[in-house]
Design a binder for these strands. Structure first.
Lengths: 133, 133
DNA sequence: TGCCGTAGTTCAAGATATATGAACTATGGA
DNA sequence: TCCATAGTTCATATATCTTGAACTACGGCA
């Protein structure tokens, strides 16, 4: 197992951050991690809404977050301690992470049903409807 | 040609916005469009940095931006007038777009070479290096 | 009206990325 | 040493992205 790669803060890109957080599962993981003031293991964040993510997928998601520079993962015995790199990112891109987390909260608050599992656009259903009419 | 689809502002998702702006070409298009206070045609935004985007790609990029709710496209004669939907999005997700645009400016300002064409993470090169050593 | 040019869209196919079960690695404890 | 736990890596099926080629829509001109 090669040692986990963490980019230097100077190599962190906006594209990487937006891409990492454009996935609802990763956004949910990151939001929960950011809400904590301590480290969390991967398995502690395995629930996304109403379903459990397979651990291989979870590992990939963490890899994306890590390589985007959003989280830091450190082995602690048999498990992994994940923490956000909020402070560093805040310094490089002021206001970016708070704005994204806030937008996610707005959306979660406004969502009528948490199980309307929407991926990226809410438009596919609407489009089909529009096409038909 | 089916009529262009624009989602209602209530159907606009954070995931969609982040995904749309996580591509450097689309981010560049959107940033330039947001900097304007008037509509722009697609061809007017065809240059991304030092290269010209094929028009089929450009069309797809505009579709993504449109379906994410970021831009509005209206046919005006033979061409297309594109405008941002900043005001609507600002109302739904306050501060999100300004924070992203600001972060992109920070990154552009800090980039040593504009032709170090970085896609999403700046890490692939660094990772190869790390692997080798 | 028919024909041509311009501006974009759609299609198709190859390249790239994502999701996940199965196999593997690393650590700690008995 | 053997086992259990927590993650990672691999392989493969699926989905998404990129882009040249073909197509559509509109306007102008005869």
């Amino acid at each position: 197992m090669r040692p986990l790669f963490h980019p230097s803060i100077d190599d962190v890109t906006v594209e990487g951050i937006l891409h990492a957080l454009s996935d609802p599962v990763r956004a949910s993981i990151y939001a929960r991690l950011a809400g904590l003031d301590c480290a969390a293991t991967c398995t502690a964040l395995q629930q996304a809404g109403d379903r459990t993510i397979p651990k291989s997928s979870l590992s990939q998601h963490f890899r994306v977050l890590r390589e985007a520079g959003l989280v830091r993962s450190e082995r602690a015995g048999v498990e992994m301690h994940n923490t956000t790199r909020c402070a560093e990112i805040e310094q490089r891109f002021p206001g970016l992470i708070p704005a994204i987390l806030s937008a996610h909260r707005v959306q979660a608050a406004g969502a009528p049903s948490p199980r309307s599992r929407v991926r990226r656009t809410a438009t596919s259903a609407a489009k089909k409807k529009a096409k038909g009419s």
